[in-house]
Design a protein around this nucleic acid. Structure first.
Lengths: 128, 128
DNA sequence: ACCACCACTATACTTTTTGATAGTAGTATA
DNA sequence: TATACTACTATCAAAAAGTATAGTGGTGGT
């Protein structure tokens, strides 16, 4: 009796966990690399050209920028637009899907800022 | 004149971007690996013993679990407690700091769930 | 014609992360 | 005493992620 109940609970917990874990891992798989969030944040400000992004995101190489933009395009978070076909001006911007990430990014930003403040206070020195 | 204004704006944008990017990257650095969020989600349900986590999180190896728990402990998101010293029962749970991540995780979960639904609709088949 | 800028791509390499497998020390159980 | 479970650790290998460096094809200006 007791064993059976315990088992059922365990299975329930397990399934609930999975249901909660899966979408969260999807998000990490999509935007959890070193450069994807910086790119998305920059594009959240305004559309950017390739070289603008290169300059905006310190340290990124064109190879990484290119790859990450392609990944983000593949996942429909970013769109590549040739805004002025005569001049071949390429711009990158967020899709609606990409814009809908704003709440996630904002939550991270707030938490990250708080965390950084706490660390700074505790250690009583400035980080960077 | 125009050039000067443009430059100033560019600098402003750049600085604002950095201010927004940094905390977001901090978060990714802390929880952006394959197993950290699954662990945090599981611990959000309840405290877990080491082997409980192993069973709960399908696919994780004890090596990874051990390492990731240590990382999370190091960053004060998770605490290790010997709840019953006589029996040496070890449990892992969220710290207050870890619990404060809930909003981030919730935002990710909601977004991830929506995204998955959209993909499923578009492709008109079930994922997994 | 020459040089610069834009939007990338190619190649090779290093570093980081993760996995597979086995093992250990301690306690409990039959 | 043998077996099993808990909470891990060690070693090595593979895979993934990221870096360094150079180069390409196109357009635009002088």
């Amino acid at each position: 009796m007791v064993v059976e109940k315990f088992n059922k609970m365990a299975i329930k917990d397990y399934q609930e966990c999975k249901v909660y874990i899966r979408p969260v891992r999807d998000v990490i798989d999509m935007i959890g690399s070193k450069w994807k969030l910086p790119i998305l944040v920059a594009l959240g400000f305004k559309d950017h050209r390739f070289n603008e992004l290169e300059r905006q995101i310190q340290g990124i190489t064109p190879r990484m920028l290119s790859r990450e933009l392609k990944d983000l395009e593949f996942n429909k978070l970013v769109k590549r637009v040739v805004s002025c076909p005569d001049d071949n001006i390429v711009k990158y911007g967020l899709t609606e899907e990409g814009k809908s990430l704003e709440q996630v990014i904002t939550a991270m930003r707030i938490w990250g800022t708080d965390y950084r403040k706490k660390i700074m206070k505790k250690n009583d020195f400035e980080l960077r």
